[in-house]
Simulated scan of single mutants.
Amino acid sequence: MALLDVRNVGKAFGSLKALDDVSFSVNAGEIFGIAGPNGSGKSTLFNTITGIPFGPDRGKVLLDGAEIQGKSGNDIARMGLARTFQRETSFDKLTVFENAMIGATYGGRQATPTAQRDNAAEALDVVGIAAKDFGRLAEELSVFDRKCLMLATAVAMGPRILLLDEPASGLTKPEIETSIGLIRKIAARGITIVLIEHVLTFLMTLSQHLLVLNQGQMLAMGDPKTVISDPRVVEAYLGTRKPDL
């Protein structure tokens, strides 16, 4: 049974169909990639899965066989699903460690305050934030370190599956390479990853399966190399030029 199962999900805003009959499954331990041009419905898909800020209008979302559509974002998080956002987000006036503690507390998967503190510290270590920086204010961090902090806060929630929305956005090439290593490190901890990204090399390097959306509909899905060579994908996502991979 799939860890995450999205079945015929739809979401509309007035007459605009942001998602139309989207279905896919993600197995435990997998890194599953999602691509598509701007406005194709990628972030809306994450919103409907997590319930933040809205769920689907129709269809089902199952986490380990249990339906989660209609549940609150907090309940979904406590069931083991976490996400990050396109822009680096943090509580700027709180310290690095306090931000991670919010994730550990919100996720609710650690029973005691001591376990929450340990999990927050471990999550920060996983993304390469040194203990000497735990007391720094989040607003003092660079863009890359703020992205790492957002990632650590999500990991501190103790998720079984983590949805990452464009983690490479705005990063330099060396930072992108570092991010690839961090995501692999997180996956090696047994956390399943669903990844939205525009940087194709990022997706191709990490993903075992790839879904491409276009105008809210599924355009192609399967092995990344096969999908990215599909003429429909080349036309919709890349124009007329085939990617050099």
Rank of each mutant, 00 (worst) to 15 (best):
G39P: 02
G39E: 07
G39Q: 02
S40H: 11
S40R: 13
S40G: 14
G41A: 10
G41N: 09
G41K: 04
G41W: 01
K42M: 09
K42V: 13
K42H: 11
K42P: 05
S43W: 05
S43I: 01
T44D: 12
T44F: 01
L45G: 13
F46N: 05
F46W: 04
F46M: 07
F46K: 07
F46H: 02
F46A: 03
N47H: 14
N47G: 02
N47Y: 14
N47D: 09
T48L: 04
T48E: 00
T48G: 01
I49C: 04
I49H: 02
I49T: 01
I49G: 02
T50G: 10
T50M: 06
T50P: 09
T50A: 05
G51A: 09
I52E: 11
I52L: 13
P53V: 13
P53D: 03
P53Q: 04
P53R: 02
P53I: 12
F54L: 13
F54A: 14
F54D: 01
G55A: 09
G55R: 06
G55F: 08
G55T: 15
P56K: 01
P56S: 13
P56V: 00
P56N: 12
R58D: 12
R58Y: 04
G59F: 05
G59W: 05
G59T: 01
G59H: 10
G59P: 13
G59L: 06
K60L: 10
V61E: 04
V61I: 15
V61D: 08
V61T: 12
L62M: 13
L62K: 13
L63Q: 08
D64E: 14
D64Q: 10
D64M: 05
D64G: 14
D64L: 04
D64V: 06
G65E: 04
A66P: 00
A66R: 15
A66E: 15
A66N: 14
E67Q: 12
E67S: 13
E67W: 01
E67K: 12
I68C: 02
I68Q: 05
Q69F: 12
Q69N: 14
Q69T: 15
Q69R: 10
Q69G: 11
G70Q: 10
G70N: 08
G70I: 11
G70L: 08
G70P: 03
G70K: 08
K71T: 07
K71D: 11
